[in-house]
Design a protein around this nucleic acid. Structure first.
Lengths: 192, 192
DNA sequence: TGTAGCATGTAAATTGTTACATGATTGC
DNA sequence: GCAATCATGTAACAATTTACATGCTACA
C-alpha cells in the first residue's frame, strides 16, 4: 500500500496538480511506482481529507480548473516513518516466467516471438535509463539526495540488464524458442 | 490477469485439490506467481463453471471433503493460446526503490537497516533456488520441458542475483545508509 | 459556435487481501 | 467425547483497471 507515499514523495519534490502528477507517474517516479490518473485523484482526495496535503491557496475549487497540492508537516512525518517500517519484498508475480512454465506442459508455440519482443522493449528501456543517467548524474555531483536518486536509477538499470541477460541466454540456449516470428514472405503481422 | 492460467498450468502438471494447489503456490509455481487459498478456490469455481476444468469423478461434492480437479481440453487450449498472446512487461512497482526515492527528500533514517534485511532475505532465496537447481536439474537431463523449467528457475536465480548485487553496491557506496540498526551509545537521533 | 485538448472527476468490474466460518478425519 | 488438523469455503474490504462523464480554455 504505497501509492499515498509515492504521491507524497512526488509532491515534496515539486507541488503539482493531479494531471501533472499523472504525467510524472508516466516517467520519473513512474519508473518504479506506476499509477493512473483515476487512482491519483482518488488518493489526492483522501490525503487532503486526512490533513497530509492541501490545495495551494491560489487554486480554484471548481471542476475543470487546475488545482495544485503541497505536502503538510503531517504528510512529511508519515513519509519519514514509512521509510523505516519493515516491509518484506513482494512475492514475485511475473506473467512471462509463468508463460514459460506453461509452455513446458502445452508447448512453446509463439513464446519465442514474445521473448524477442520483450528483449527489444527491455533494451529500449535500458537505453532510456542510461540517457537519464548521463544527463542527470554527472560524476562530480555529490549531494545526498542526488546520490540516493542515482542509486534508485541504478536499480532500474540493473533490473533491465538482468532481463536482457536472461532473455538473451534463453533464446541462445533453447532450440524450441527459435521459431521465426513470422515467415518473411507472408503479409506483415497485424498489430492491435 | 494470469491467475487462471497459473492454476491451469499447475493442474496440468498434476491434478490437485484446492489445498494442494495452495501449497504449491507457496513454492514451485508460487516462486513466480503467488496466490492465496481464497483466490484459488474462487478461481477454481469460475474455471469449473466455464468448462475448463472438472472435479474428478471420485470427489464428493460435500463441504470439508477433498475435491480434486483436472484440466479439460478447453482449458488446455486456452492456456496454449495465452502463451502466444502479446503482453507487455508489467510496469515496475517496487516499494523498496520508492522508499529510497522518498529518502532522498525526507532523509534516509532507518532505510539502511531495511536494505540489510532485504539483502539477507534475497541471499536466502537465492540459496534455495540453487539447492533446487542442484536437485532437479543435473547436467545430463535434456527433455524439452525440463530445459524450459530450468530456464524459468534461472530467471529466479538471476533476479535474486540482481537484487543482491544492487543492494550490496548501494550499502558499500552510500554513507547515509551506513547507520547502525540503532546507535549503541547515543539516544535515538531526533528527526524534524 | 464548434471542436480539440486540458483538467478533474465518477462508476463499475476485477483482482487481491484479511478475517472468519464450517465440515470431515484422526489420534488420544 | 475432544482437540488438532485437514479441507473447503464466505464475507468484507482494499487496491487496481477500464470506461465513461463533465467542465474549462483557446482558437479557427
Amino acid at each position: 500500500m504505497s501509492l499515498p507515499h509515492a504521491i507524497l514523495t512526488a509532491l515534496l519534490e515539486k507541488p503539482s496538480s493531479g494531471l501533472e502528477l499523472t504525467r510524472r507517474f508516466d516517467r520519473s517516479i513512474g519508473y518504479f511506482w506506476s499509477s493512473t490518473h483515476q487512482q491519483i485523484y482518488r488518493e489526492l482526495g483522501k490525503l487532503e481529507r486526512s490533513g497530509q496535503i492541501r490545495a495551494l491557496p491560489s487554486a480554484q475549487p471548481a471542476r475543470g480548473q487546475k488545482k495544485e497540492y503541497e505536502v503538510l508537516p503531517a504528510g512529511r512525518e508519515e513519509l519519514a516513518a514509512w521509510i523505516a517500517l519493515p516491509e518484506d519484498p513482494r512475492p514475485v508475480r511475473d506473467p512471462l516466467l509463468l508463460r514459460m512454465r506453461a509452455a513446458a506442459v502445452v508447448g512453446a508455440e509463439g513464446l519465442g516471438a514474445e521473448l524477442r519482443r520483450h528483449l527489444a522493449l527491455h533494451r529500449s528501456q535500458l537505453e532510456e535509463y542510461l540517457r537519464i543517467e548521463e544527463r542527470d548524474f554527472p560524476p562530480e555531483r555529490t549531494a545526498d539526495e542526488d546520490r540516493l536518486r542515482h542509486i534508485v536509477l541504478r536499480g532500474g538499470i540493473d533490473m533491465e540488464t538482468f532481463w536482457i541477460g536472461w532473455l538473451t541466454r534463453a533464446l541462445a540456449d533453447e532450440p524450441v524458442l527459435r521459431e521465426g516470428p513470422a515467415a518473411l514472405d507472408e503479409p506483415a503481422p497485424a498489430e492491435g
